[in-house]
């Protein structure tokens, strides 16, 4: 349980960033500082730092035009452009107003799209109705997202978060930004959210894909439990824009093996029909369904130009993160 001093410390970290986020989200009133949430923030921060320290990777670079060393090309001057970029020699020679552009090493905006719809909420529930950060799909997803954000922020990249579904988060859409305070804002959002609602992957991914910058990195963490034929096409917008898409397919191995001892009535937290299932009698057929589904998702992601990373909840997280931040994909891990 966090004490008043800890709350003050977090509030100090957040500062102006929180207020700006509130303004964007239209959130009313002051932030209700919840000691449980703040404790989760600290836990997330600690876990992310530990995991990031275990991963040793080289620097990664992204490129964009900017003001630096190597000349890239010319562009016609337009009102509103910084006049310091004008190439006077060209103006003298040809009476044309052009601006010089350069290539340089620069930051790579990273957006983590995290699915916390109702289906992620199955499993144990932690304190205060929030999902346990260990042993649950939602906790695994939140921890993974926090680690990803911490990792990229530590490497100086602006990081952002887009929540899909989920309940209780003060902010569900935080565009990429730099700075520790922004990271804490993201952690606060992650710590305070609990699974709920419907994912509507197709709509959300289309929306994110249309908004991210052309050269950026988008990591989608989801269980993909909607008809793939509906949302896989939405991933193509990332590939068309040149976005580096990394798709983390999160699943609970026990759910994909229908590991139930006897007949149950199964239902989805997101709604829909209840289905009585006698698991021992249909396990063989279910395995065929799962194999087909995993293949369908993986093929769809690769076809959209993304990287596919399987993330079973019982897999060591550092291995998933290593797969995630490296270029290339690993074979799908079958349950």
């Amino acid at each position: 349980m966090a004490g008043p001093r800890a709350i003050d410390a977090v509030a100090g970290w957040l500062g102006r960033g929180a207020r700006e986020a509130d303004d964007r989200a239209g959130a009313p009133g002051p932030i209700p500082w919840d000691p449980i949430v703040l404790a989760r923030v600290r836990h997330l921060h600690f876990t992310a730092r530990v995991l990031a320290d275990r991963i040793v990777l080289g620097e990664h670079r992204s490129r964009r035009t900017g003001q630096a060393v190597e000349f890239a090309d010319y562009r016609e001057y337009a009102p509103g452009m910084d006049p310091r970029g004008l190439d006077w020699k060209v103006l003298a020679r040809s009476d044309r107003l052009v601006v010089r552009r350069y290539e340089t090493e620069t930051e790579l905006p990273v957006t983590v799209v995290l699915d916390l719809s109702g289906d992620l909420g199955t499993g144990e529930t932690g304190v205060g109705g929030l999902p346990s950060l260990t042993g649950t799909k939602a906790g695994y997803a939140i921890t993974l997202a926090a680690t990803m954000l911490y990792w990229f922020q530590r490497h100086g990249e602006p990081v952002g978060l887009r929540l899909i579904g989920g309940e209780g988060a003060r902010w569900s859409d935080l565009p990429p930004r730099g700075g520790r305070s922004h990271l804490q804002l993201l952690f606060l959002a992650l710590a305070s959210v609990k699974p709920g609602g419907r994912a509507e992957l197709s709509r959300t991914l289309t929306e994110v894909g249309a908004r991210v910058r052309r050269r950026s990195l988008v990591t989608v963490i989801t269980d993909g439990m909607e008809e793939p034929a509906n949302w896989l096409p939405a991933l193509r917008s990332f590939g068309r824009r040149g976005t580096d898409l990394r798709f983390v397919h999160l699943y609970d191995r026990r759910e994909l093996t229908l590991d139930l001892p006897e007949a149950r009535v199964l239902y989805s937290p997101e709604g829909g029909d209840e289905l009585p299932i006698d698991a021992p009698g249909v396990r063989k057929d279910f395995r065929a369904v799962v194999e087909h589904y995993l293949g369908e998702v993986r093929t769809g992601v690769l076809a959209a130009g993304g990287q596919y990373i399987a993330a079973p909840t019982d897999a060591p997280m550092e291995r998933v993160i290593r797969n995630l931040v490296q270029v290339g994909t690993r074979p799908v891990e079958m349950p």
Binding site: T122, D273, F286, Y293
Partner: peptide, 22 residues
């Protein structure tokens, strides 16, 4: 007779596909 115990299940998409198949 139907089973009485209900269970929230995260992979209902796959269960629905299974039911459709069967």
């Amino acid at each position: 007779q139907r089973p009485t115990e209900r269970l929230a299940y995260g992979a209902m998409l796959l269960v629905q596909r299974l039911v459709k198949r069967l």
